[in-house]
Design a protein around this nucleic acid. Sequence first.
DNA 1: AAACTGTTGTGAAAAATATCACATAAATCA
DNA 2: TGATTTATGTGATATTTTTCACAACAGTTT
Lengths: 210, 210
Amino acid sequence: MANKSCIIRLSMYRNALIRLKTLNFVKVFSDNLADVARVTSVQVRKDFSLFGISGNRRGGYLIDELISQISAILGKDKVQKFIVIGIGNIGKALLNYPSFKKNEIELVAGFDIDMNKHNRDVEVPILPLEELGKFVAENEIKFGVISVPDFAAQEVLELMFRAGIKGVLNFAPICLKEPPDCVVRNINLETELENIIYFTNFAEQAGASR
Amino acid sequence: MANKSCIIRLSMYRNALIRLKTLNFVKVFSDNLADVARVTSVQVRKDFSLFGISGNRRGGYLIDELISQISAILGKDKVQKFIVIGIGNIGKALLNYPSFKKNEIELVAGFDIDMNKHNRDVEVPILPLEELGKFVAENEIKFGVISVPDFAAQEVLELMFRAGIKGVLNFAPICLKEPPDCVVRNINLETELENIIYFTNFAEQAGASR
DNA sequence: AAACTGTTGTGAAAAATATCACATAAATCA
DNA sequence: TGATTTATGTGATATTTTTCACAACAGTTT
């Protein structure tokens, strides 16, 4: 079965393909994708073979065909709606983030407990948290982002789960316990920076001792 | 050698430990950390053993000691300064992100090409991109975040590299080519969402066919 | 039409990562 | 003080992921 990094790579291939298409590429080779996505060409082909995507021996892949095949796998054949809970720094950034729409991802509403943040008269309304359940049911929302402070995150996740949300991206710096049949992915900005700090320092030490 | 996920786990253990310390824990067991960081206890101990961290047979680990050992590994024994390039949605969110300081990570300046965004009269100034090299040299900055549009990202990375920056967190939705001796880590918001979408749909299908 | 070239596709091998099983040590109890 | 309990620490094993090596094939050249 496909694993997490494999799907991440598919997304990257798709991005690369879209970019290459704007350059008027008609067919691409696994080597092209490997270069752009910074992996090996075998990795590209192995990933494709896992999903039954095949090209033409010696002829590479037809770019349009490939894009639509990958898009289908990633659920990009239809617009995927999602909501954001917690309109702080990150929540606000997501509300204004331009490239979701280009990628068939649509942020349809934000939620917050702070009534000063509520606002219904805009394209993407900010609603009180109490309306979450109703909104999710009426609009058939499956995906959501958590951008509340750490202490509130687990509670918000359970709220989302009860509302019927099935997939969650969590920015709160805490490792959430995923409810059954609910996919949760954590992005922790400090952790990411700490990772970079470690490997940078490590590389320096290794370099110095070389 | 330690790998990327191992360091991410160390960060998570540290977060967990700090949380447990506020609850007045004095010692912790690998099982406690496993629960909070959502891994197995063997994994915790294996990770520790990789860095020569040892506890007391039967007695677990002294929390203060453990925090300082992990902190030292992650470079948290001193404040790590970093800058942000591109003061758009994400850049702004980072400027106001509260929990960096708690974690010995200090955002010291932002940079942008748009002169309307420049502002020197605040704690974290926003400076013109031309001043990057000078600022980085004078303030001995080693780390930076890229939050510019995709088409500008590679160029900005090379600019940062020439200025002397060694570790970069990239939010631009493009896979950057890392210069030699420079650590680059990509966070792509769309890709993360696509990942969630895929696995949510997949779980649904698997559930339905069960 | 035969030889050649360059790319895909994949079984097998290797490398990386995580888990298991259990020896070892420290504390407690009888 | 010997037996028992409960964690740690780690070699061995299993699993996952990536890379290697090369057969298969479709064009292209001679």
